[in-house]
Design a protein around this nucleic acid. Structure first.
Length: 592
RNA sequence: CGGGCUGUAGCGCAGAUCGGUAGCGCACUUGGUUCGGGACCAAGGGGCCGUGAGUUCAAAUCUCACCAGCCCGACCA
């Protein structure tokens, strides 16, 4: 074989050869499997792309595996051309690495730990910052070796509490993850932007519309971070977007523009007010005949086990991710009734910041400007009026801990924000020095001085990307694959395999098209209806039928999966037309 | 881990109230008729009724325990 480049070789290895439906394993299902809830999951099972082996564990069958490989190949090409280097580290990592950064204790149960026969502690990699940082620590010692951006396309395991939606959120999954190391922040910025651009190309080539949205950095740590979101009703993330100026952010970290008018009213004397069984903001608003923004809502949380009191204006909701970050906590949850009583001395509904002792208080930025506010008195059936922040209570920290919703104002241009659900298919982070510090990665700069590299990391859920494509591109009959990741480009359907002339023509066509395209031929002795229905289900973009029109006038029927039109063409015209369609579709994925 | 539900053939389900040793549709095998949108006829194969214990002459069915899976909440690509 000529040297064609790694990408061509990979394509050849996986996709070469003449493919017959009868020799494939495509176990299509007529009925929806009862466990599948969302369309992509149903269709992946029905079209014979995947089979489940246990909760959150799936096998990719031939058709699904081919599509998956197409996605990984696109990822690989774009990563390579962005200057990243592919490596293959082990899926199992020793616990010591995780202990170095402290994540062995902070990662939680989604990280599956086990011991080998020598009693060494091991981890099934849920992510690979430590492993990659370690490789760089061992191999990179000079600024001349930097920057590097290493990546893998490899199995990950996260012992999800609740796997669901098939391959969309499973426990074992394929992920592309890259880790960049730079000498300085400018270098990181360049790598980050290169990845951002590569990601847009990757998803575009997969036929997906994505939004890069501002995101929370979560347990990875770091400063800037963006998620690549596929808008979808089944998405598990809530995104707010401004159609005016383009501001897009995950609600976990979105901010809203708000006016905090400081009234010139004189501060009145604090006073108790009996409020028998009046607990919710709604009830209180009615009871005091005022508006919700006059109240200080007081919520008790447990941050890593210790109680934290969050204060927010009555007309707003606390965003727990923001609060968690403000509190510097790893885990955060609303405290139970007993804990509330313990901290405040009163039942739920009567908590307030005045007089609270020995507990951290985090106030939303909406709190300090309040004047003569109303809040719980930490006694049953009692509230306080004319409470003034600063005078009557203090707080450890004031931070933006408020939830942002559709209708709130854009922080950039002050127009109302819209909200939609999205599937997170990729995530890019600027990690900073978190890992290189913890693991003491050193290189010598030009002046021979010891420095630490600055890191970024960049992930793509490969299986999830594939599922998102199906979620976004299907109809009542089945999958509609984009040409770029379809398991085959062309499906040839001889209607009657017993008809020698038809079969001969179909085989000849199969041979001549196979040199340039991936062609599957449905040579099964099945009725036309069965073949057409399976064809629609598995969603190959180009369908060529050899049947009636061939018998009558020697013409092939050309139909595209994404259209209802049929064309009837002789062989030469057909081949030309297929070429046009293919080239045109593929070019479309690369256009800006 | 909390709340709700389900485990019977490869898939979808019935049978359970009323205990008597398992059935339907699809899929599968064979033969025939059919043949452009999930055909028909005939004959077949396939089940430790999730696991274990208990009650009983007898358990898919009643009791208890366990296991697994699904849905709703906290984790995330």
């Amino acid at each position: 074989m000529n040297f064609l480049g790694i990408d061509a070789i990979i394509s050849h290895l996986f996709f070469g050869g003449i493919m017959l439906y009868s020799k494939m394993l495509i176990p299509t299902l007529r009925e929806d499997p009862k466990d599948a809830e969302i369309d992509s999951h149903k269709l992946m099972l029905r079209a014979g792309l995947i089979r489940k082996s246990a909760a959150g564990l799936y096998s990719y069958l031939p058709l699904g595996f081919r599509a998956l490989l197409k996605v990984t190949q696109i990822v690989r090409e774009e990563m390579n051309s962005a200057g990243a280097l592919e490596i293959l580290p082990p899926f199992v990592t020793p616990a010591e690495l995780w202990k170095e950064t402290g994540r062995y204790d902070t990662m939680g149960k989604e990280m599956l730990r086990f011991k080998d026969r020598h009693d060494n502690e091991m981890v099934l990699g849920p992510t690979h910052e430590e492993a990659f940082t370690n490789i760089v620590r061992e191999t990179v010692h000079s600024y001349r070796d930097l920057p590097v951006n290493l990546y893998q396309i490899n199995t990950k395991f996260r012992d999800e509490i609740r796997p669901r939606y098939g391959v969309m959120r499973c426990r074992e999954f394929i992920m592309k993850d890259a880790y960049s190391f730079d000498t300085d922040e400018a270098g990181l910025e360049a790598n980050y932007q290169a990845m951002r651009t590569a990601y847009r190309k990757i998803f575009k080539r997969c036929g997906l519309e994505v939004d890069p949205v501002l995101a929370d950095t979560g347990s990875m740590g770091g400063s800037a971070s963006e998620e690549f979101m596929v808008p979808s009703q089944v998405g598990e993330e809530l995104i707010v977007k401004c159609h005016e100026c383009g501001y897009v952010a995950n609600t976990e970290r979105a901010v809203a523009h708000r006016e905090y008018s400081v009234s010139g009213d004189p501060l009145l004397a604090i006073a108790e007010k009996e409020t028998p069984a009046v607990k919710t903001i709604e009830e209180l608003t009615a009871f005091f005949s005022t508006t919700p923004d006059k109240f200080i809502k007081t919520l008790v949380y447990l941050a890593d086990g210790a109680p934290v009191v969050a204060l927010i204006r009555g007309d707003m909701e606390v965003n727990e991710v923001k609060l968690k970050n403000a509190a510097g906590a790893v885990e955060l949850q609303l405290a139970g009734e007993e804990k509330v009583r313990e901290v405040t001395g009163a039942p739920v509904g009567f908590a307030g910041p005045v007089g609270l002792k020995n507990v951290r208080i985090i106030a939303d930025i909406s709190i300090p400007p309040l004047v003569n506010a109303i809040t719980g008195a930490n006694k049953k059936d009692l509230h306080l009026v004319n409470v003034n922040p600063g005078r009557d209570f203090k707080w450890e920290k004031a931070a933006d801990i408020q939830s942002v919703q559709a209708g709130d104002l854009c922080p950039e241009c002050k127009r109302p924000l819209n909200a939609y659900h999205g599937i997170e298919v990729g995530h890019i982070f600027k990690l900073g020095y978190k890992y290189t510090d913890a693991m003491n990665v050193i290189f010598l700069d030009k002046d021979g001085k010891e420095q630490k590299p600055i890191m970024g990391c960049y992930g793509i859920g490969v299986g999830r990307t594939m599922a998102s494509v199906i979620e976004q591109s299907h109809d009542e009959f089945g999958i509609i694959w984009p040409m770029s990741i379809a398991p085959f480009h062309i499906l040839i359907v001889p209607v009657n395999v017993m008809d020698a002339a038809q079969m001969e023509a179909a085989e000849k066509l199969h041979k001549s098209l196979s040199s340039r395209y991936e062609v599957l031929m449905d040579d099964r002795d099945e009725r036309a209806g069965v073949k057409f229905n399976d064809a629609d289900l598995i969603g190959i973009p180009i369908r060529i039928t050899v049947g009636k029109s061939f018998a009558a006038e020697g013409k092939f029927e050309l139909k595209l999966r994404n259209s209802k039109e049929k064309e009837f063409l002789g062989e030469a015209e057909l081949i030309k037309r297929v070429g046009e369609i293919y080239e045109n579709e593929m070019a479309g994925f690369n256009r800006d």
